[in-house]
Design a protein around this nucleic acid. Structure first.
Length: 564
RNA sequence: CGGGGUGUGGCGCAGCCUGGUAGCGCACCUGCUUUGGGAGCAGGGGGCCGGAGGUUCGAAUCCUCUCACCCCGACCA
């Protein structure tokens, strides 16, 4: 590819609305352009990076027996009505009607279509297992698209689906995907963690997420440096250190105007860890429930939802008054006439809680003595808490979710009647798994993890080109001939080269080369006439080697590998 | 959905408070000079000031509504 004839619009200045590093660099290096909120055009360089990622994904999916198919983006509502998701998914699904007024939607994912296909084509246990995958556009009307290409409304996804006769076979398919994903992300040069995650709306038997650490990430994971425990914070259990409780009898204390944990503990002169935060929620089915966490902790609503088995919303202030007889800030579990769920950290201890009486708290309160409740893990794990497996202090990292794997079970095969006959002639539902990778997120994560002040530093496997040939003296026939011959011999050797043959000053070309981040740069300039050499330089280490033009093809892999 | 912010040539911004018919840097075009880390000089092209309505002799500027985009939070296969 010749720069003079290419659409590689680099930007000297950063567009004002780009915040994340990957977003800025992908815009500046001419990889993408934004068409609307969360909708992007991939320019030639961005497309080449996606192609690289997709090629790796295809190889590894094929290696575990994956068969590539393509399923429609435009789908009839009936499928989603059968699975129940037409109702359960809200505004996130793009819905439309065809000319006959039939309800349609744009696919956010393809479990329904897979189950539909399996229902028609799979008859016997002899047809199983199956691994189907596609690399296809997904449409989701995200509440808040953000961070450039990291969270968009239209995006490419590799999604695969396994069909198995039973959960034991699903475990094998799941394990195969897990190791394929590790190979994929290893080959992409990403640093990543495999963490336990909340299956969420997908439902099912278990799931893991592949997380690339980055400040631009939207998720947080708790990681144990000791034993390797790693989990999304929405699931991670942290074991807090218990405070020492003063021996005080149960008594009511006046706490005028103290409505927050900070105010109450300051007023009473105690550690906030001796207090309990009481939060009233309303379950969509079962109504009000009082959730308790330690005063210094933050409740994690997903954990509460899991503990209750239904969606919840925070109660309105007047609901708090109605159910507990006092306002927010003065409520507590003692005497409360609603069900109570308490965080595990509250099992033992003598706590300070709201008295359900305006301006008063109770101290010396114990769970199981002064009130009845059930226990669950409700608080958000924080750095320094003990690992649930080995007790070592946990660390919290911000991460980009680049892939996930779900054991679905029969959640979709039952409603869509995807069944097979087993060896005994018994009809049974197919056991499914679903597995996703976001190629654009892989690209963005790679940029997040590998860049410097001058631009992107692509790993070889993802780089849009391997070598960036800079022709400095465009009017010098010798330089031009050397650059041309180097460019051709690189391609002939299977090394993808980009030739900067533009009529630009050297400084402009060097700046652009750094910005684009192609792993190896070859400069054809003055040194050719002077010493008969060109410069072969690593973008990552900036280590440079001077070699004769005929030696470039041999030198490139060595410089790329850091051997100079 | 809640909170905050921004819309002025391709990009980055000033002008708005205190109304008088749009400006700067970069980019782009032409010429000359220049040529190893985003060149210099000279000349030039390009903007219904997000949109609609209103106030006014006159609106980028004031008022109302609306749309778009960004950030924080909630949500998230």
């Amino acid at each position: 590819m010749r720069l003079s004839k290419s659409l590689i619009p680099t930007l000297r200045e950063v567009p004002a609305d780009a915040e994340a590093i990957s977003h800025r660099l992908m815009l500046r290096a001419g990889l993408v352009r934004q068409l609307a909120a969360g909708i992007y055009v991939y320019l030639p360089l961005g497309q080449r990076v996606l192609d690289k990622i997709n090629a790796i994904i295809r190889e590894e999916m094929n290696a575990i027996g994956g068969q590539e198919i393509t399923m429609p983006v435009l789908q009839p509502a009936e499928l989603w009505q059968q699975s129940g998701r037409w109702e359960s998914i809200g505004g996130e699904m793009f819905r439309l009607k065809d000319r006959n007024g039939r309800d349609m939607c744009l696919g956010m994912t393809h479990e329904e279509v897979v189950a539909w296909l399996a229902a028609r084509e799979i008859r016997s246990y002899r047809d199983l297992p199956q691994v189907w995958y596609q690399i296809q556009t997904k449409e989701r009307d995200e509440a808040r698209p953000r961070s450039g290409v990291l969270r968009t409304r239209e995006f490419l996804m590799k999604d695969s689906y396994t069909l198995d006769p039973d959960t034991a076979a699903l475990e094998k398919s799941y394990a195969a995907h897990k190791s394929a994903y590790c190979k994929i992300f290893d080959r992409c040069g990403l640093r990543y963690l495999v963490v336990e995650s909340d299956p969420g709306m997908m439902g099912g038997l278990g799931s893991h997420e592949f997380m690339a650490p980055s400040a631009a990430g939207e998720d947080e994971v708790a990681v144990c440096p000791g034993c390797g425990y790693a989990a999304n914070v929405e699931l991670a259990r942290g074991i807090p250190t218990a405070p020492t409780f003063p021996a005080s009898p149960r008594e009511e204390v006046a706490t005028p105007n103290a409505k927050t944990i900070a105010a109450v503990s300051a007023l009473l002169g105690i550690d906030p860890r001796l207090t309990v935060k009481s939060l009233l929620y309303v379950g969509v089915k079962s109504g009000p429930v009082l959730a308790l966490v330690r005063g210094d902790h933050t409740i994690h609503e997903r954990k509460l939802v899991r503990a209750l088995g239904e969606e919840v919303r925070p109660a309105h202030p007047d609901e708090v008054r109605e159910h507990l007889g006092a306002g927010v800030g003065s409520v507590g579990p003692v005497g409360a006439k609603v069900p109570i769920v308490a965080d595990d950290a509250l099992k033992t201890g003598r706590w300070v809680v709201g008295a359900n009486r305006e301006g008063y708290h109770l101290r010396g309160v114990s769970a199981g003595v002064d009130f009845e409740c059930r226990f669950a893990d409700l608080h958000t794990a924080t750095a320094g808490e003990g690992c649930p497996q080995c007790g070592a202090p946990l660390t919290i990292e911000r991460v980009i979710e680049v892939g996930n794997i779900f054991k679905l079970g029969t959640k979709y095969s039952v409603p869509l009647r995807a069944v097979f006959l087993d060896e005994a002639g018994q009809e049974r539902p197919i056991v499914m798994g679903s597995y996703g990778i976001g190629p654009a997120r892989v690209a963005a994560a790679a940029v997040e993890q590998s860049h410097d002040a001058d631009g992107i530093i692509w790993p070889w496997a993802l780089a849009p080109f391997h070598v960036h040939v800079v022709l400095v003296g465009i009017r010098d026939p010798d330089q031009e001939a050397a650059a041309e011959s180097i460019y051709r011999s690189l391609w002939a050797a299977g090394i993808e080269a980009l030739l900067d043959d533009r009529d630009e000053r050297p400084g402009v070309k060097f700046k652009d080369a750094d910005l684009l981040g192609v792993p190896v740069r070859v400069v054809v300039g003055n040194a050719l006439a002077k010493d008969g050499v060109v410069e072969v330089r690593s973008r990552a280490t900036r280590v440079e080697r001077r070699v004769a033009p005929g030696e470039v093809v041999r030198a490139v892999p060595e410089v790329a590998a850091g051997r100079s």
